[in-house]
Amino acid sequence: MLLQQLISGFATGGLYALAALGLVLIYKTSDVVNFAQGEMAMFSTFIAYTTMTSYGMSYWEAFILALLFASVLGFIVERFFIRPIQNAPVLSLLIVTLGLMMIVNGIAGWAFGFETHSFPAIVGGELKIFGAVISKSNLLTLVITVFIMGILFYMLKYTLAGIAIRATSENPTIARLMGIAVNHVYSITWVVSSILGAIAGMFIAPTTFLDVNMMSSVLLKAFTAAVLGGFTTFVGPVVGGLILGVLENIASGYISAQLSSTFAFALIVIMLWIKPTGLVGQKVGKKV
C-alpha cells in the first residue's frame, strides 16, 4: 500500500519535476518565469494526439513528432517574443508570457476544438511487486522521467552546452565576456524547456484527459514544485516535484481531489512564507 502510493506519487511528482525543471532552466538563465509553458505543452500534446488519430501514426512516432514541434515552438517564442525585450522589467516579461498563454490557448481552441479527448497511456496493465499493485504506465513513466533527468543533468554537468548554460545562469555578463554566445544559450534553454514540458504533457494527458485547459492545473503544480525546491538550483525542482507528488498522493486520502490546486496553493504560500528560496535554494544577496 505504501509502496503503491510512493510509486504513483513519484510518477506524477516526476512529471511535475520535469515541467518545473523546464521553468527553472529558463528562469535561471534569463530571469523569465514562463507562464505560457503549460499552454505550449498542451499544444504539443495536441499535435501528438492529432497525428495519432487523424494521420494514423504510432504512439512513438507521434511522440517524437510532438517533441520536434515543441522544439520549434520553444525556439520561435524565445527568438521572436522574448529576445526583443530581454532586458525589460519583470512586469513586461511577465505580461509577454501571459499574452503568449492567451494566444497559444486561443489558437489551440480554434485548431483542435474545445472537446475533451482521452489520450493513450504508454502501456496498459498492472504489475505486482511485493504485493503492491502498480500500474505499468506509472512505472514506465517513472523510469523514463529518471532517464531524461539523468541525461539532462549529465548534459548540464559535462557538455559544453551545459557548462555554457550554467555559466550564463551564474552571470550573463561575465559569460558573454568569456566568449559564450549567450543568445544561443537562451535559445537552447527555451527549446529544452519546451521539450520537457511536452513530455510532461503527454505523460499526464492519460490521467487528466486532453483538452485546451488541461495544463493550467499542471502549470500550477510545476510552479509549486519549483517554489518548494527553489528556483535557484537545478536540483530544487526535482526535489520539489517529487515531494509534491508524494504529498498529493497521501493527501488525496484525506482531501477531496477537487481541492488539489488549493492544496498546491497552500504549499506555495507556506513555503514562500517560511523559506522563499525553497528547500535547496541559496539566498541571493541584494545590494543597495
Binding site: F81, P84, I85, N87, A88, P89, L91, S92, I95, V96, L98, G99, L100, M101, M102, I103, N105, G106, I107, G109, W110
Partner: peptide
Amino acid sequence: SLSQIITGAIIIAVVIFYPNG
C-alpha cells in the same frame, strides 16, 4: 477564441512597443 488571441497579441505588442516598462 479570436478575442482571446487578439487580446494576447495586443498586450504583447504594447510591451514590445514600450520595452522600458
